[in-house]
Design a protein around this nucleic acid. Structure first.
Lengths: 195, 195
DNA sequence: TGCGTTGTAGACTATATAGTCTAGACGTGA
DNA sequence: TCACGTCTAGACTATATAGTCTACAACGCA
């Protein structure tokens, strides 16, 4: 042997399926290489550490998820942004399990590997930019409480509505979209409060 | 040496604070006994396994949390049940972190220790009973989609609204209650749909 | 054909962890 | 005061894991 039998993508794919099946904690260097039939040396030849593998796994997944969300916001369609979560989940059940059933800290604890830090920061800033843009459009300004409202309606509620179906490995039913949409309308309706 | 220096409650308290600070994974037999200055033998004299400790920790916490929720449902006050989450979180920040920031499976993976199984099952049944009761009252029946709505408005949304504050170790601001209440009214309002 | 680069191969080390086991200290009741 | 039961004490075992290190195989190029 001597020529490449495994590349970065192989390791990432094995890690991805393990994480979807059994959670990020089950993604060990041994389990990944075993699934691939690869020796440990090949793994460490390509990834400096387990953290780098898991960080890359998380980051690529969150970017893929965020893409449609950002597009909806840029198109000025807040409801579509809120409904992006169930839609994406239906198309990418495994990736969704990986991303939405676990926290970022279940992938990499403590400091993130330097090569990924900027990527994570950019991702977060882009997301916050979306919240601010939406906030201005829907609520007229992007102060703290408007941003809090935006987070609630665009992120927290959609993710919460989808979670139990991810746990059961099933696509969220249409009712989930209804619940998200009804909440969206209530929270973005101009005259707020109980009266 | 000889007479009891530590009892079950001591170990549970040490585990509780560790879990709140650093998550259930950080609750190891060594970390718990170290925090207490107790020897390992004392721990295993009282708990058959780490799983038993963590299971008991989770179960007692979820029961404490559920108590106010059940009371609100039995009083026929659905909104109070939805707002119970932020209220309880404010009074028990540490326990709330422990309970709401992690899944049950982060405490005990695989099969639960036999002595706890029944407790967990009863707890789940009681919760489902509440959902059904609320469902009947708010939606007229307790079919699958009404139960799904009930879960959304009584559990998923309140917990989601509170999460980011738990992560920051801060009490949820009043705005969180507003968001939950507005959602509650929208979802339980009689004439549904977009019209 | 020989040599250097790239990557495979897997034994090896270090460390964290759950759980076991034996010794013995202390209090209590006979 | 003695024997026994309760509980502390901590060394010990087994296992999982991240990461290291040395050997060498295959390929391309001179």
């Amino acid at each position: 042997m001597g020529r490449p039998l495994f590349d970065n993508a192989d390791f990432l794919a094995a890690a991805r399926s393990l994480a979807a099946e059994r959670g990020p904690a089950a993604v060990t260097v041994d389990s990944v290489t075993a699934r691939l039939g690869a020796p440990k040396g090949s793994f460490y030849y390509r990834f400096a550490s387990r953290d780098l593998l898991l960080g890359e796994l998380w980051l690529t997944t969150v970017l893929a998820y965020q893409q449609g969300f950002v597009a909806a916001i840029e198109a000025g369609d807040g409801l579509a942004a809120a409904l992006h979560t169930p839609a994406w989940v239906r198309r990418h059940l495994d990736d969704a399990r990986l991303l939405l059933l676990h926290s970022r800290h279940d992938f990499v604890q403590g400091d993130w590997p330097a090569p990924l830090k900027r990527g994570v920061r950019d991702q977060a800033e882009r997301f916050e930019g979306c919240l601010a843009a939406f906030s201005r459009r829907a609520f007229g300004r992007a102060g703290p409480s408007e941003l809090r409202r935006a987070t609630f309606v665009l992120a927290e509620v959609p993710i919460a509505a989808v979670r139990q179906h991810l746990e059961r490995r099933e696509p969220p039913p249409p009712l989930v979209d209804e619940l998200i949409a009804e909440t969206y309308r209530a929270i973005t309706a101009r005259p707020r409060g109980r009266g």
